[in-house]
Amino acid sequence: MVSLVAEDVGVTLGGRDVVHGVSARLEGGTLVGVLGPNGAGKSTLIRALVGLLPARGRVLLEGEPVAAMPRAQVARTIAYLPQGQTLHWPLGVERLVALGRLPHLGPFSRIGEADRAAVARAMDRAEVTHLADRTATELSGGERARVLLARALAVEAPVLVADEPLASLDPEHQLHGMELLRGEAAAGRLVIAVLHDLGLAARFCDRLLVMDGGRLVADGPPGAVLTPALLAQVYRVEAAFEGGAVIPLRRLG
C-alpha cells in the first residue's frame, strides 16, 4: 500500500518560516484531515508534500524522495486539488475533467478508451455527469468545486491531496464530499484533505493533523485530538461536543 512520509519538513516563503519541523508517516487506506486556523501553514505543508515547493527535510513517496522524482511520475502517484477554483479558460466540463488524464498520456498519444472510462467514473463519483456539456466557468461555485474534484479523481492516483475540497459546498454536498473521500480511502488510497469543518473532520477522518503557527501540534485519531484544551489552544474557541458533532460556541479572549 502507498506511503507518504514527511521527515522534519520545513518551508521558508519570502524569508518567513511558514512550516517548521513536520514529521508524519501517512499510509494508504486512511483519510487524513489537516486542520488548523487560517495562516497555520496547512496549504504550504501539503504543497510541500506534493513537491510543489522547495522544502527542507525530506518527503518520501513510496520510500523515494519526491524532490528527486520526475514530475510526471509524481503526477501519476499524487492527485492534487489546489485551493480556490482557478480556471483560466471557459472549458467544457468533460474537457476539464479530462485534464486529469494528462499525466497518463504518452508524448504524442491521444486520450484513449481507458482514459475516457476514467473520466466517466470520476464524473459519476463526483455527481457531475449531468453537467458534462456545460461550460465550467458558468457553473455555480458549488458545482464548479465538484467538477474540479472530479478532475482530481480522474487521475486515479494512489494518493489524493485536496486543499479545502468542501469550500462553497452546501450541507448535502459537503456530506457527499466527505463520503466520497471516505470511499477513496476505503479503496486503499491515501487521502489527505485540508478541512475547516471540525464536525465533519471528527466524523469522517481516520486521523487528524493539526497545524498551528507552522508546527504540527497534534496528530492522531479524531477522538484523541479534538479536545477542549486543543481547541482552546489552537483555535481560541470553546466548543460543545455532542454526538460526534463539534460546535464552536464562544471565542476565548
Partner: peptide
Amino acid sequence: RALDALTLGEDGAAALGVD
C-alpha cells in the same frame, strides 16, 4: 498539453506533471 494544464493555474499544472 502544458498550456492546457495551465488552465488550472501554475500549481495545478505542476501537479499534473508539467515542468
